[in-house]
């Protein structure tokens, strides 16, 4: 006998998902793959539309809109979430995680679960997953950087959040807060001396035109968080919520692997276009210097707690 679909599945939902990266970045492809899978699994009940280049607005504005119940999502990072739940900033600290596998394991750490619950219950932000890894951040400059002292007096563009600023300061540079899009002209006019980014940002932003050296310090593994408003999340039927989260993790892990592979190609391509890789970077010295950031921000205990839980 024909059975009518459950009431919850008859209602249709739309999620508009915003990110600041360009349409040719692997993330954009990844988000679209995630959207396709969610649509398939929910038989079109939940449609995700992906907006690149921050078309829907400034990241902080979008986060605020989600908290007020808008059916919007955002690709963000632990530094920004750390302004709501302080401890979360550790995920964005110097030399915190090293590999994609380590990041996947972090999802099971009880402390991180507790932070996510607090974020959802008290601040209205639901983390769907954080399996999206853009790779290691390195310093790109016009002077070779081998040890923290080489960064002294160098003005390095850094995202405007305390954990970013303190991390870069701890590593020896003078952080300059600046939006992503302003970096190229600032470098061209030498308003800043360098940037700290992942390899995959370099060709997109055309930074090889204005920067000569890549010093592979790998000081931060850039982990991104996919977040929606808890009110919107709770309004979804249970199976849609599961689909949204599971497909987020799958697409994120697949995209992170694609990025890791592409990173090697990009690196070779940039060397071909005249960028120099600085060899013999003193990693031990950078690790020691980076530890200072956690002390300054008062989150050293939180870092130790999470690392203990994942057995490091």
């Amino acid at each position: 006998a024909p059975v009518s679909a459950p009431a919850s599945a008859q209602e249709r939902f739309t999620l508009r998902f915003n990110h600041v990266l360009g349409p040719t970045e692997p993330y954009h492809e990844g988000f679209q793959a995630w959207a396709r899978r969610v649509q398939e699994r929910t038989n079109g009940g939940l449609t995700m539309r992906v907006f690149h280049s921050a078309q829907l607005g400034v990241e902080e504005d979008i986060i605020e809109q989600m908290r007020q119940g808008a059916n919007i999502g955002q690709n963000t990072d632990a530094a920004r979430l750390g302004t709501y739940v302080k401890g979360m900033a550790v995920l964005n600290g110097p030399y915190f995680a090293n590999t994609i596998e380590e990041v996947a394991r972090l999802a099971d750490a009880p402390t991180i679960k507790r932070w996510q619950d607090e974020l959802a219950a008290q601040h209205g932000l639901q983390v769907l997953c954080f399996d999206w890894v853009q790779g290691h951040r390195h310093f790109y400059t016009n002077r070779p950087v081998r040890k923290p002292e080489d960064l002294a007096g160098q003005r390095i563009r850094t995202p405007p959040a305390p954990i970013w600023q303190e991390s870069v300061r701890a590593l020896g540079a003078a952080p300059v807060a600046m939006a992503f899009g302003e970096m190229y002209p600032a470098l061209q006019q030498r308003a800043i001396d360098g940037v700290e980014l992942v390899w995959n940002n370099i060709p997109g932003g055309r930074f090889n035109e204005v920067l000569r050296y890549a010093s592979e310090t790998g000081h931060i593994l850039l982990i991104n968080f996919q977040v929606v408003g808890s009110r919107f999340f709770q309004s979804l039927p249970a199976e849609y919520r599961t689909a949204l989260i599971e497909e987020c993790r799958a697409a994120g892990q697949a995209t992170s692997r694609v990025i890791a592979e592409r990173e090697q190609q990009v690196r070779q391509q940039m060397i071909g276009r005249g960028m120099h890789i600085v060899d013999n970077v003193d990693m031990e010295a950078f690790r020691r210097a980076g530890a200072k950031a956690y002390e300054v921000l008062g989150i050293a205990a939180e870092r130790d707690a999470v690392l203990r839980e994942v057995g490091r």
Binding site: E64, T83, Y84
Partner: peptide, 12 residues
């Protein structure tokens, strides 16, 4: 009122 937790330019 509702967004008072949002920091200005990430300054605590």
């Amino acid at each position: 009122w509702v967004s008072r937790a949002r920091t200005f330019q990430g300054i605590p």
